[in-house]
Design a protein around this nucleic acid. Structure first.
Lengths: 124, 124
DNA sequence: TAGTTTTTTGAGAATATTTCTCAAAAATAT
DNA sequence: ATATTTTTGAGAAATATTCTCAAAAAACTA
C-alpha cells in the first residue's frame, strides 16, 4: 500500500493552498513535480484517495468536480461572480431525523449555495 | 412567444407523470409525438423553459440533470439503490440568515440527500 | 395573400469531463 | 534474481451537453 510518487504528487496538490481545486488544476500542479504524469493517473488517484477517506470530492452545479483536503462535515458556497468556493457548516441534524421518520435511511447529503461573496459585493 | 409543437412536446413530457425525467427520457417521450424531434431541440427547449421559470432543472450527484415540473421551493433525495428521486422540504431560513450575516448574498441553494428509500429498505 | 424577415428546427460536429483499456514500467514478493 | 502484482501513461471511449448552420416554419408586412 505504498504511496507511489504519482499518488503522492496528487495528494500534495490537493493538500496545497489551492482552493478546492478541480482535477485539471491538480493535474497542472502535479505536472510541476512529474512532468509526464497522465491525466488518467490523476483521476485514478483522486478516486482512490476519496474512497480511502483521505480527501473528499465535491460536486458543484454546472462545473467540474472539485476536491477538498478538509474531510470534516461541511458544505460549500460558490460565488457566481468570481467562482470562489467557500466552506460553511450546516446543521442537518433535524432534517436527517425528519427524513428518517419517513422511513428512509440517509447515507449522505450535499448542500451547495450559490452566492455573491463578500469580496465581490464590496467591489460593486 | 408561440409554443411550437416541439416546445409543447417537451413541456408535455416534463409535465407527464414521469418522475423527474432526464433529458434523454424527455427525448424518448417527446419522440412518441414527434418521431423526428432532435435531441438538441429537446435540450434547447428545456433550457428555455427553465429560464422562463416554467420548469426547473435539478442537478444530481454523479448523474445527468433532471427536470422538475414542480417549481415550488423544495429539494431532492435520490435512492442509491433504485435511483428514485423523492421531493422534500428543507427550511433553509436561518441558514440563509447566518450566511448573509457573514456578508454574502445568497442567490439560490441546492440540497441533495443520498438515501435508501422506504421501498428498497422494505425489500431487504 | 405573396413576399420578407425572424425564429426555430434537425443533424451532426464540437466540447467538457471523466472513465476505460491495455501494454509497458514500477513495485513487491518469493 | 525472478516471478507476480500493481500502477502507470497514452490514448480511445463514454457521457452529457452545447454549438453551428442551412433548411423549415412561423410571424410580420405591404
Amino acid at each position: 500500500m505504498g504511496l507511489t510518487k504519482q499518488k503522492k504528487a496528487v495528494l500534495d496538490a490537493v493538500m496545497s493552498p489551492a482552493d478546492h481545486p478541480t482535477a485539471d488544476e491538480i493535474y497542472a500542479i502535479a505536472k510541476v513535480t512529474i512532468p509526464n504524469i497522465g491525466l488518467g493517473t490523476v483521476y485514478r488517484n483522486l478516486n482512490t484517495l476519496c474512497s480511502e477517506g483521505i480527501i473528499r470530492k465535491i460536486e458543484m452545479p454546472g462545473g467540474p468536480d472539485r476536491f477538498d483536503k478538509d474531510i470534516s462535515p461541511h458544505d460549500h458556497m460558490v460565488c457566481s461572480e468570481c467562482g470562489r468556493v467557500i466552506d460553511f457548516q450546516v446543521d442537518m441534524g433535524d432534517l436527517k431525523d425528519r427524513i428518517e421518520e419517513r422511513g428512509f435511511k440517509v447515507l449522505s447529503h450535499n448542500v451547495q449555495v450559490v452566492c455573491i461573496c463578500d469580496r465581490c459585493l464590496a467591489k460593486e
